[in-house]
């Protein structure tokens, strides 16, 4: 079974092959390689894989490639300069302006409508005031609230349909509004688009574990443990992997770290069972 040092090296050996290790770590890996035939064998295997990837070389593009690019650029530039030269009042712009003006008029008419001028104050009669002067008509309609909460239907076109809000003597107007928002939220849940899935080390680790790739799973869980949010789950994962690898002491250590997390690093290597 690989010893402690081998497992530490295992995490760095790809970077060593890719020459991406800092000098001190590189020396440490080389010192270990001098004394470990298994790790030397691994390096040979990885170098062979890297050599295969080194075969990827630039390809020759079609002969007219550059000409086509320049053609596209010229076409774009011509379009750009033509656009700048055109006057501001193109039919399309007039169309947009007309649409904007229409929308503005609709919005103004919408907010000028008396139905939407609602005033609700605590302890006072609920009043709906149309936009007429007192001289024209005593248009205020007073609704005396009962001691218990009164349910009053107020049609609110801006909410996208009819809704019911509770209006009572103890409720200030803003509470009524927020209740309305909550109600809308109940009927119309806000759907946010799911973010583009970035690969989470924890998920990667779980995938490896599921596929039975224990060493990869172990590395991924150890990386996931660096993230404070995933630390506990990752440490449990480390423990599980060690357990499956038959390294019960290391497994217990990992479980301990998961339960009594004191900020130490994830256990990095399996301890040889005595």
């Amino acid at each position: 079974m690989a010893g402690l040092k081998c497992r530490l090296i295992y995490r760095r050996v790809w970077e060593y092959v890719d020459e991406q290790l800092p000098a001190n770590q590189k020396r440490a890996v080389e010192a270990h390689l001098d004394s470990c035939a298994d790790c030397r064998q691994l390096v040979v295997k990885l170098r062979a894989e890297a050599a295969a990837a080194q075969l990827i070389q630039p390809l020759t593009p079609p002969a007219d490639f550059a000409a086509r690019v320049l053609q596209r650029i010229e076409a774009l530039e011509a379009e750009r300069s033509g656009r700048a030269a055109r006057r501001a009042f193109t039919p399309a712009r007039i169309g947009w302006a007309a649409t904007a003006l229409t929308l503005l008029i609709i919005a103004a008419a919408y907010f000028a409508n008396p139905v939407y001028r609602e005033t609700v104050e605590p302890g006072r009669p609920t009043t709906i005031t149309p936009s007429v002067t007192a001289k024209e008509k005593p248009a205020s309609i007073a609704i005396k609230p009962k001691p218990e909460a009164i349910k009053k239907e107020v049609t609110m076109a801006e909410a996208g349909g009819a809704r019911t809000v509770a209006v009572g003597p103890k409720r200030p107007a803003r509470v009524v509004k927020s209740a309305g928002i909550r109600e809308i939220a109940k009927t119309k849940p806000i759907i946010t688009p799911a973010p583009v899935a970035a690969e989470n080390p924890l998920e990667v680790a779980a995938e490896y574990e599921q596929n039975g790739e224990m060493e990869d799973a172990l590395i991924a869980y150890q990386e996931a443990a660096d993230n404070p949010q995933d630390r506990e789950a990752a440490l449990f994962g480390v423990g599980r992997i060690y357990e499956r690898m038959g390294l019960s002491i290391s497994a217990i250590e990992a479980y301990d770290a998961a339960v009594f997390d004191n900020g130490n690093d994830a256990p990095e290597s399996g301890r040889t069972e005595g």
């Binding site: 790809w14 894989e49 890297a50 295969a52 990837a53 989470n200 080390p201 990667v204 991924a220």
Partner: peptide, 23 residues
Amino acid sequence: LKLPMGTVKTHLRRGREALKREL
């Protein structure tokens, strides 16, 4: 690639393994 570095290393390693196998 907008991915964590550990994931990138894993992808690179698995990619090279797979490339060699396919070659």
